[in-house]
């Protein structure tokens, strides 16, 4: 997954020289906006970042982020999805691309744009043309059988976040089973448990994002290094 197809003639996005676009999807009420706010607080001092929200009906999510003052207003953009949140992140990503490009233009040094999807069902999946990486958020109160049911979001996201673990004893959810079931459908891709009430910094998710950015910078560096060696060889011959 991702936009780093160096030789892809159909590449929909610019692979280098722009911010990493991170999609955050998941069902209504799973905690996407609270996670986005926590990530902004955790990462804003080390990364140049911005957020696009895909509100279903209002600009409530964007308003929440502004009210919480996690970022300055000019770094938060709300997109309307015409009653089809999954269309806006998958089939027709133009409004989100427009928003990302406008943010990038306003803040040319951006490292990371978080694109938060509107609350959707388990089949929601971000297009590779929009998101370089994607996180799917479930909450334990939504039913501990959800990871077993799978779905595109649960199975294919680069990171699965099982959120609100503090509620597990209250709603009788079996966290160990959720973790095992998720592992089975995800083929080894990472799963983290989070509780913003107990760990408001979303430490596990923030650490994963740092890792992604580090790996990309490293890959890019290797790539440049390889080019440099080719140039040296060409010059020597």
């Amino acid at each position: 997954m991702g936009a780093n197809h160096d030789h892809d003639p159909y590449a929909a996005t610019r692979p280098h020289g722009r911010a990493l676009r991170l999609g955050i999807g998941g069902p209504v009420g799973s905690g996407k906006t609270a996670l986005t706010a926590a990530l902004c607080r955790a990462l804003r001092d080390e990364l140049d970042l911005a957020v696009v929200t895909n509100d279903i009906y209002t600009t409530e999510d964007a308003d929440f982020l502004r009210r919480e003052a996690v970022l300055s207003d000019d770094r938060i953009t709300a997109v309307r999805t015409g009653a089809c949140p999954h269309t806006a992140i998958r089939d027709d990503i133009s409004a989100n691309l427009d928003a990302c490009e406008a943010l990038q233009e306003r803040h040319p040094g951006l490292d990371l744009i978080i694109v938060e999807s509107g609350g959707d069902n388990l089949t929601a999946l971000f297009s590779q043309g929009l998101a370089d990486r994607q996180i799917f958020v479930l909450d334990v109160a939504g039913g501990d059988d959800v990871p077993r049911k799978g779905g595109l979001g649960v199975a294919a996201a680069d990171l699965l976040v099982i959120n609100k673990t503090d509620l597990a004893p209250l709603v009788g959810s079996d966290l160990a089973m959720m973790g095992r079931d998720a592992g089975k459908v995800r083929g080894g891709k990472p799963v983290v448990f989070s509780s913003l009430r107990e760990r408001p910094g979303a430490d596990e998710v923030a650490a994963w994002i740092r890792g992604v950015l580090h790996d990309l910078a490293h890959e890019h560096g290797e790539h440049e290094h390889e080019h440099g060696r080719e140039r040296e060889r060409a010059a020597a011959s």
């Binding site: 089939d91 027709d92 409004a95 427009d98």
Partner: peptide, 11 residues
Amino acid sequence: SRLPAGGHAHS
């Protein structure tokens, strides 16, 4: 109507 040109968000 499936052309990915943003029409779905306009009424």
